[in-house]
Amino acid sequence: MAWTALVVEDSPTMRQLIVFALARIKGLSVIEADDGVDALKKLAGTKVDILITDINMPIMDGLKLTKRVRSDEALKRIPIVIITTEGADEDRQRALALGANAYITKPIQAPQVLSKVKELLKIA
């Protein structure tokens, strides 16, 4: 199987950490976006199997992105993993209410990223 993950995060370092963690999943290729608007651009051009997004980003944040993806016929089945931080409970609740499937917390831990992504992509 081959999958594509879209990682949406405005900090290049954090993005790189996630991308590196995901590199351990065979057959998964990764594309990256800086914020929600950039993510929508990428989503229009590529078939994405899983979306991993930060909440707090300039212009379009993770909540709006989740909402937009969930209300789009072509995209609404894409599993969404929200990246949150300790303390941002309110925004995490909102993201889950909007239809995000799971969340991971910063600092990014590779095993946590891997287990959520594998679970959602149904990889053993």
Binding site: N56, G87, I108
Partner: peptide, 26 residues
Amino acid sequence: RSVHTLKALAGSVGLARMAHLSHRIE
């Protein structure tokens, strides 16, 4: 937002003090 990102960055590379300080500043 900037200190929020800093917190996550510092946490990711094991700078505990910087992470904690930026957390409280946040």
